[in-house]
Design a protein around this nucleic acid. Structure first.
Lengths: 340, 340
DNA sequence: TTGTATGCGTTATCAT
DNA sequence: ATGATAACGCATACAA
């Protein structure tokens, strides 16, 4: 266990701890005689000295850690985001402390507490639902905070998200351009801003085109494969009205679930039913049919989130900014032109 | 910013900081008069006091953080593992500091340094290749360390991994039971113990059955879709010998890549060629054909890793243990009986 | 049961 | 250019 302290190094080098501290620091090492500095550096090396960031943190009031809150670590979409965060922070020699809220308000509360107790220099939160606004506002009051991935109605807190309104619009545009006029969307949890935006973007575009759009909503807490199945079933089981020829599922898992149920009902995708997903999850390109979907720059969002906390830390009094990243349509095989 | 300290609380409650400290602590709060304790607790509440774990850490020599090293955060397989780690640590009120080695030795070195400088109470490393042994041994010398997911030849360090030897054997068994006698395996990076084991497990089982098994190896640093394609191409381009009727790809991405190249060559899977993957990645069940694969309990591995560091921390002098988790064969549609 | 005093390992201020 | 010293916020050994 690295029990060698600065004091040991100083004694070994025959200088005072304060000198040793200066010599070893990056920004004040020029205040010390090159020869002395060399001696200290060597002493440190020989003793295997390793600075104690805890002590340093206590003294300087900076821990060099950033709290990161994620809803579900096993959601494949979050991987690239974490990558972006990790690499963005790494450049500043900041370390992410990772926590999972499991989409539960109590857990979110708890992890926020732990993070603040650790005196993280900032927080990046990619989790939280409408009901968690108060909690996050409190956190933002105590430490530089950026809300990432999920869009929030509040503009009081710095926010980086994808433009899901545009995403919904892209999906709608795509289906419209294929000639579909009977469409539906399978809704994800609407208490998450990003899903709400998809809903509105899609619906708005359809309305603008004079096309009626069916919103199929269920008791969807999580947008899973099963949720997709259930909503598709609900859609097909409607007795009134004609069957839509195209469906927008608000994420890829739901799209795959929907595809499965449709197949069970003897509907061929895309011949009988076009389906467009959201997120461009891994392997969606290799499904049969390959899934048309909306691609989001997760890695970039992570990187930007990291840069935003950093700038917030360095300049605490700046007004909250808000950046939105553009989604892109990926056309594959699950969507095709409407043929009566 | 929570600048209220224990001293503030003590003054507010009219007691000494030491008393306040005791009153607020979990284990020594019984040493203080219930009335006093109540007063302190109330004072803390009213002032919005939040313990400073940094200061506490410096004093007690425990940071309540665990360093976690991952090779690639965007690998979907790592998600459940992180979940397991996160939840396992959460129970002990430990916080994971997450780092990514990007499968680079220099980066691994760097993050280990940062982690040790943070004085993490322990390290869980799921990354590293054969060439990183020295680095990890050094880390294990300085702090309780568990090597997870990837198997290591050394038994000096506590290790939790999947039994990939058995995994390879399961794949082999499956293909043998289907009657295949011309088989090949597409090798992942052999400087990672887990892949080496798959190779040997598969080969051994085949040898025991008296079946010759082709090992297709390339310059595979990462087991990706493209690597799978390339190795499959290499396999099919061999001029000598007959074409195998079954292939074991050492992970799912490679399997999908292999499937694609086979299709391009006019080979139908599974009719002309059975393919078995490894990992049971998300969506593999929904491919066409659905991928037969080996399923690994990633979440459990994460949880166990967490429990192992904890026990290592609590009892530093224990001898290193080693736990192996059983893989399971998942039979789907990409494998079928050999028909001449 | 409570208070006093000290130190954890740094960094920063002030002298020298 | 370097050294002495205090402080960061907390926990503990010891005294009362």
């Amino acid at each position: 266990m690295a029990r060698v302290t600065l004091k040991d190094v100083a004694e070994y080098a025959g200088v005072d701890v304060s000198t040793a501290s200066r010599a070893l620091s990056t920004d004040r090492s020029n205040l010390v005689n090159p020869v002395t500095r060399q001696r200290v550096t060597q002493a440190a090396e020989q003793l295997g000295y390793r600075g104690n960031l805890q002590a340093s943190a206590l003294r300087r009031g900076r821990t060099r850690t950033i709290g990161v809150i994620v809803a579900d670590l096993s959601n494949p979409f979050i991987g690239p985001v974490l990558r972006g965060i990790s690499q963005g922070l790494d450049g500043r020699r900041l370390l992410p402390i990772m926590t999972e809220s499991r989409d539960s308000s109590e857990t979110l509360d708890r992890v926020c507490d732990m993070l603040l107790a650790q005196r993280v220099d900032g927080v990046i939160c990619t989790a939280g639902r409408a009901s968690d606004r108060a909690t996050l506002r409190q956190v933002a009051l105590e430490t530089p905070t950026v809300l990432a991935i999920r869009r929030w109605p509040t503009s009081k807190i710095t926010n980086v998200s994808h433009n899901d309104f545009d995403g919904g619009r892209l999906a709608a545009d795509h289906l419209l351009s294929l000639g579909h006029t009977e469409v539906a969307q399978l809704l994800g949890p609407q208490d998450i801003g990003s899903f709400e935006d998809r809903t509105n973007g899609f619906a708005r575009r359809m309305a603008d085109a004079g096309v009626e759009c069916l919103n199929i909503e269920g008791d969807v807490h999580l947008p899973t494969f099963d949720a997709g199945r259930d909503l598709m079933q609900k859609l097909l089981d409607r007795t009134n009205g004609s069957r839509p020829t195209a469906v927008f599922a608000q994420n890829d898992s739901m799209a795959v679930g929907a595809m499965h149920l449709a197949a069970e009902r003897g509907l061929n995708c895309p011949r009988d039913l076009s389906i467009v997903g959201y997120n461009d999850a891994p392997l969606t390109a290799h499904l049969t049919p390959a899934l048309s979907t909306i691609k989001l720059p997760g890695y970039e969002a992570g990187r930007i989130a990291a840069e935003l906390v950093v700038s917030l830390i360095e300049e605490p009094e700046q007004s909250p900014s808000s950046v939105m990243l553009a989604p892109a349509l990926v056309i594959r095989e699950s969507t095709t032109t409407y043929s009566p």
